[in-house]
Structure formats: C-alpha cells, structure tokens
Simulated scan of single mutants.
Amino acid sequence: MSNQSKIILLSLVLFFSAGCSISQVVNKTLSPPTDTKWVNIEVRNPSQYTKPFPLEVRYISYECKKKRISGFDGSVITEPSYNAISIPMQQENGDIWKGKVAVTGGGSCKWALSAVTLGIQYSDATHLGKDLVPGTEVGVSLAFDNDASRNGQFTFVTGDIDLSPKYYPYIREKKMGGVENSLSLFGKKDFLLLRVGDIRFVRFSPEIDEGKITRFVGLEKKVKGKYPKIIYPDGSIAPEKTLFPDFDKVDKMGVK
C-alpha cells in the first residue's frame, strides 16, 4: 500500500494472509437491513488545496469463514472473512463533506462493521512549490470491534466523536532513485487510532498551519557517514538518523 491509511485499514487482512489459502468463494454483497443503524461522518475540509479521501470501510463475517493452511505446521486454520470497500464523500455546504456507513452490512454472510478510516490529503501541492506532488494522507481510524483493535494501540472512546487535530506541511525531497518532491501533512499522530462503541456521529475538523513548513532533504547518492536531513521551519536541523519530524518542536516554534 502506498499510503498510511490503507496500511492501517488492511493490516489485519495482510497479517492473516501468511500461509496458503484454501480456495473459497465468499459472497461479499452487502444488503443492509431496513432497521440497520448508521454512522454519519462529517469532514470539514480545511483548505482549498486539500480534500477528504473516500471512506475506507471494512466489514467482517463470522458466518462465511475462510480456511487457510498454516505455513508453520501445515494445520488448517479457520478465520473470519473480510470485506473492504470504499465509500466516496459527498460535498455539502462549501467545506463540509459527508458520508454514512451501515453498522449492519447484511447479505448472506451477515457482514458487520469492523473498521472505518477517514481523513484528508493534499489534492494540489503546487502552491508551496511548483514541482511538488500530493503525498500521504492523515486522519483517524475507527475500530468497531476487538478484531480491528487487536494490536492494542487504539484508545477507547465513548459517545459521538468530535475531533480537531492540528497538522503542518511536510515536504519530502527524495533524490536517490529519481527525484520526487511530495507535500504531505504531519501531526502529533498522522492517524488517530480509536476504539469506539455505539456511536452515530463522527465530526473531523482538522486544522492546518502552512506558516510552518518542515522539509526532508534526501541524499543525491549514498555516502558513508552522510544522512538525509530534516530541516525545521526555523532552519534548525534534526539530529542525524532522525526518522520523523518532532511535532511538539514545530508546534511550539516561533517562526520569524
């Protein structure tokens, strides 16, 4: 996967793919019953240069289980089936985008909602550099069951959700293997991980401060003892071998 949200959404599916699968056909048709509950999602787009990406939704079925052969001892393992779909967000009232997801997916496999990922990404990056292209996404991943939150990194929350995380621009200048200059956003956490209960509404209202730009400058060629640099908005350089920019440092930074 090329972006972080898809990695988060599909990580469990990929984890369970180890070993050889036993060929089975699973009916992934969704048919929400008339009395299903819905999760209504609202995203406030913070900039003319960003756009909410489609909702990345995963359903789970314990009715239509799949079998695979373990790569360790050859035993047959039975596990749930997964059904990943994408739901486009609809623009309403200017910067407000909305979508909704059925809690009960229904169908012959009795699909149940397991996870939803939502958020924003740059749709146009040239306002901060003519050679820039849009980079990775930011947002929130919601786990609706224990299966989706099994890695233990999810924070449990109750009630409806109203989030307003702050993000800063992050320009990556990659030089080895071909020049690629991308513009992404980074926050305290690029993706919030929340384990939710019986919710009906999610509002995501991110804030962007483009007055503080952090840059990653790659090497033109591999040189022993030389490393890429992360340059902060005030011109200071992160310690060598730093992998990610320090959000708190940027957040507290006064830029002249």
Rank of each mutant, 00 (worst) to 15 (best):
Q4H: 13
Q4I: 14
I7R: 08
I8Y: 13
L12M: 12
L14Q: 14
S17T: 12
I22P: 00
I22N: 06
I22R: 06
I22C: 01
S23F: 14
V26F: 08
V26C: 08
V26I: 13
N27V: 12
L30Q: 09
T36W: 02
T36P: 00
K37E: 15
W38K: 15
V39Q: 06
E42T: 14
R44I: 09
T50Q: 04
K51I: 10
K65P: 01
K66L: 09
K66T: 11
F72M: 08
T78A: 06
E79C: 03
S81K: 13
Y82R: 15
N83T: 10
I85T: 11
I87G: 01
P88K: 11
M89D: 03
Q91N: 11
G94Q: 06
I96K: 03
G99I: 05
K100A: 06
A102S: 06
T104R: 07
V116K: 01
L118C: 08
G119P: 06
G119V: 12
I120N: 03
D124C: 01
T126Y: 04
K130W: 02
D131K: 06
L132P: 07
L132V: 15
P134Y: 00
V138P: 00
V138R: 06
V138W: 04
G139R: 07
S141N: 15
L142M: 04
A143W: 09
N146G: 11
A148K: 05
Q153G: 09
F156L: 12
F156S: 14
G159D: 08
G159M: 05
D162H: 15
D162I: 12
Y170C: 00
K174I: 10
K175G: 01
G177T: 00
G177P: 00
E180K: 10
L183Q: 06
S184T: 10
G187W: 07
F191N: 12
I199H: 03
I199G: 03
V202I: 14
R203T: 15
F204N: 03
I208Y: 00
E210K: 04
E210L: 07
K212I: 09
K221N: 08
G225D: 02
Y232V: 02
P233L: 02
D234R: 08
G235E: 05
G235K: 03
E240N: 09
E240Y: 08
F244M: 07
D246I: 01
K252S: 07
G254H: 15
V255M: 02
K256S: 11
